[in-house]
Nucleic acid binder design. Structure first.
Lengths: 241, 241
DNA sequence: TCAAAAGTGTTCGCGCTACACCCATGA
DNA sequence: TCATGGGTGTAGCGCGAACACTTTTGA
């Protein structure tokens, strides 16, 4: 019935993942560039196999791009407007790729399948960026971390999806103690504060931030971290599971 | 390609609506009972036409059951577990309806269509219960308002969907000034307070509740309401749009 | 001894809660 | 004039923000 690459997927439904990472006071998103002429980038995505749940599908997609198995994952919204189809995108490609790349690499049936209208389930994931070795899929030319404020223009409504994901992340961050998943296992209070400041794009008072975090009672204080700098050495912390 | 009743729908995706109403200090949900032997109830739901957005589909489904066009509507979650299919349900029906009702009223193609695994997009709606004249669809035997604590057992995971909807409603109620949509246009402060107490299932202090609501600066105070009771007449209010 | 940055204790103001009081209404 | 329920003012309390002070570190 409905096949793409010989797999039996649910038709007209896709999953798009906003994979957040954090490095050097910047919130980043993992974005592959498609192996087609014309600079097309999109969110890492995929389809849902008949014999897997949507969460399993999202995990499979994430694992393929990040190599990580245990990832913090949250479904945040469905995008189902009319006009969410790859048609204009493929038309552009056909125009740009007259030889044999791109659209030609799809056979006729696959092209029909992929250019229909799609409903997309948005997931966001939080990862320790240092643990990720970004993996190209077979349709990618490259895959890279982009600072969220310097994202390239993405296909369809994918820029909008990122904006929505960030909004949802901000709402959940305080509630669910998920910020730690963006950091390495061991971190200083300053690291944590800078992460929060980056996500909310506003400063926090140092002492109050520390107090608030410690009162959550989820941090183990470890030994001090001697940096060689001429100041008091900060404690290291670890998130208690 | 994919047809049910001659319509071209997206396959394996459904919409389920939790329609909230409020009457006599009770939060209610509109639940149709299916025209099949064996007491099957489900959430009002439907499918997505190829040429409508998911929001439009939800509105169409809501209008069909409530008669109302302008309805407060919120998408709150996607349910996509494995095993979300109507197969066990239809097997039960076949067992119970040996004659010609129920499953037999579907032709073979429709049966195949409807018994596949489904991904369902959950919406909740808030309506003024007095404006609604519940409408049966052709597959319903009846349709009724049920107090949320006395819901019947619904098919598949629909009871779970209702629980999720209520949870989302509670989270949004304070943020988005949507409570008023459950009340008639004109109401007293006591009406509003009782609505909140019902939804959150806990009491609020009368004076503080009043202050909080008035400080939102979204209520127009109208004339007093003389009830004939031997006490001070309460003001009537209207939500300012 | 000093500057830099980390850790901690204290005060201030706001918003929510609780208590108190007054007012209108019909019997 | 009284009971009932509605409207409003004020005091207490807890949390987060702002401020202040101490401690540690290497130059």
């Amino acid at each position: 019935m409905q096949f793409l690459n010989g797999q039996d997927y649910i038709q007209q439904v896709s999953i798009d993942c906003v994979i957040f990472g954090y490095q050097k006071k910047q919130l980043k998103v993992l974005v592959p560039k498609l192996a087609l002429k014309g600079d097309f980038s999109s969110l890492p995505g995929g389809f849902i196999l008949q014999n897997e749940s949507i969460d399993q599908a999202a995990r499979r997609i994430l694992q393929a791009r990040t190599g990580l198995k245990d990832i913090y994952l949250e479904q945040f919204r469905v995008f189902g407007d009319l006009g969410r189809n790859n048609m204009p995108f493929f038309e552009q490609i056909v125009g740009l790729n007259q030889e044999q790349q791109g659209a030609e690499s799809f056979n006729r049936k696959e092209l029909e399948w992929i250019t229909r209208r799609f409903i997309s389930i948005g997931y966001y994931a939080l990862v320790d960026i240092h643990q990720v070795v970004p993996q190209k899929s077979e349709i990618d030319q490259s895959i890279e971390w982009y600072t969220i404020n310097e994202l390239p223009s993405l296909i369809m409504d994918h820029n909008q999806i990122v904006a929505n994901a960030l909004q949802s992340l901000r709402l959940s961050l305080d509630q669910k103690l998920i910020g730690f998943t963006l950091l390495p296992e061991i971190f200083t209070m300053k690291d944590l504060q800078e992460l929060y400041e980056t996500i909310y794009d506003k400063p926090f008072a140092r002492n109050n931030f520390q107090k608030k975090m410690l009162e959550l009672d989820v941090l183990d204080r470890l030994e001090k971290k001697f940096t060689g700098a001429a100041n008091k050495a900060p404690y290291l912390y670890r998130f208690r599971k």
